[in-house]
């Protein structure tokens, strides 16, 4: 039930944003992510944006996973 999915903000009106969720348009309340802007991805759960998606952090985590995977003799 804690399923939450990323969607891209297309337009903002007050605390409501129109978002693109893999091709479908959906509306979300963005009052909990006041600095979100058009073009940002937000994580939506039950009609509310929980948090912004941070692409830089995503790339860093992926790099960390790669590094850990390539450690030949370490755990």
């Amino acid at each position: 039930m804690c399923l939450a999915v990323p969607a891209k903000i297309i337009s903002i009106e007050g605390t409501t944003a129109k978002c693109d969720m893999s091709g479908n348009t959906t509306v979300a309340d963005i009052s909990m992510v006041p600095d979100a802007e058009i073009g940002d991805y937000v994580i939506i759960h039950a009609g509310l944006a929980l948090q912004k998606y941070d692409e830089q952090e995503a790339l860093e985590t992926l790099a960390l996973f790669k590094e850990l995977a390539d450690k030949p003799d370490g755990p």
């Binding site: 991805y41 692409e55 790339l59 985590t61 992926l62 996973f65």
Partner: peptide
Amino acid sequence: MNLVSFNDPQIAGKLLDGI
């Protein structure tokens, strides 16, 4: 901005070896 995929089976396989 783009979403980054976390589904690479090769990395996952190596992490499983590490586990």
